[in-house]
Nucleic acid binder design. Structure first.
Lengths: 195, 195
DNA sequence: GTCTATAATCAGATAGAC
DNA sequence: GTCTATCTGATTATAGAC
């Protein structure tokens, strides 16, 4: 099963991305060398450059891919037609999606400062679009009287911070099931938006 | 005013810590070399080792100092005698204290993975103690019927994540004053704990 | 107390053999 | 497609001059 050399096309590209994801999340971009990534994959450092032009591109592609997938998944998510139904959909979606990808989530906001300015701007635009998805729901609910919010922008940031925070403590097989976590946070969000 | 050499005892120690704080927050521990810190202070790299045994100690002392100060400041904070008054005190204190020290706060949880295991355990114990301060307030309020919480531990984590999140967007001189931010978040926390 | 010089190691990235 | 070898420069930390 273990192949050392001469392994033809295989799937080295994706395996490099997987290794980088894992190592960047564990040790941080700056602390991970191309040699460490190569060792994790089982190739020599030079071979990585067949698949990525440089280390920065590796980081950017991970973050850009994550944000693109996140936005696409939210677009594809079934959401009700009332603000309250949409808010519930967002709350549950956000927790579920983030819990399932702790490494990508961690990197996506821990490694922002290691992006080149150009790459940073792209990731920031993605993030901003995602925040606006929630902000639009809150604005709609506020206008039709379903929500009573002290400040829409602040509640947007408060909710996202609160929900993303689940990733800092949630462990698979822990005290609470994912379903239970979703329900409890949805109750908290409901309380936050209702006068 | 600019002294290059022969500057006697001066206050080089604290200046090294200040420079490290600033650079670690901006670029991350792994990306900052001892030479960069030395350049920021205005000395040569070798001179740093008169004040710190190594780079790891520099990081640990910053984080340990921050957490110790945070806990001491909370102890010294005037807090009412009811759970609701204590919760308001905690909410306002947390926002205020964290807003004032964005760099230390950032480092304190971005650089956890760069601590040696022994140092990590010490910082984790501090953090845990701080979380328990809030958890104890919530438990007391729950028991005496002032709060109706779906899960005390979760609400603890939710509130802390939400409040710490202020640091990601708050800018001095921005749209909202500190007082206003404090009040809005206190309203949100109130809603979260009241049935 | 600071500087310069140095040791030993490691970094990102490329060239050419196979 | 991967390896080995290599270039160039940076890394932490120490030794010894001043």
């Amino acid at each position: 099963m273990a192949r050392k050399t001469g392994s033809h096309s295989d799937i080295t590209g994706p395996r490099i991305r997987d290794a980088a994801l894992k190592l960047f999340a564990q040790q941080g971009y700056a602390a991970v060398s191309m040699r460490k990534i190569a060792a994790e994959v089982g190739v020599q450092a030079g071979a990585l450059y067949l698949y990525t032009p440089d280390k920065q591109s590796l980081l950017f592609e991970l973050m850009d891919g994550h944000m693109t997938d996140l936005l696409a998944a939210w677009e594809a998510e079934p959401k009700g037609d009332t603000p309250i139904a949409q808010l519930e959909a967002f709350t549950r979606f956000h927790i579920r999606y983030h819990i399932d990808r702790p490494e990508a989530v961690f990197i996506a906001y821990m490694e922002l400062r290691n992006l080149t300015p150009k790459n940073f701007a792209i990731i920031e635009a993605h993030r901003r679009r995602y925040e606006e998805a929630l902000e639009n729901i809150l604005n709609a609910g506020q206008e039709e009287g379903a929500f009573r919010l002290p400040d829409t922008r602040l509640v947007t940031m408060a909710v996202i911070a609160m929900l993303t925070g689940v990733n800092t403590w949630y462990r698979e097989g822990g005290r609470l099931s994912r379903q239970r976590v979703e329900r409890i946070y949805w109750r908290l969000v409901q309380r936050m938006v209702k006068g």
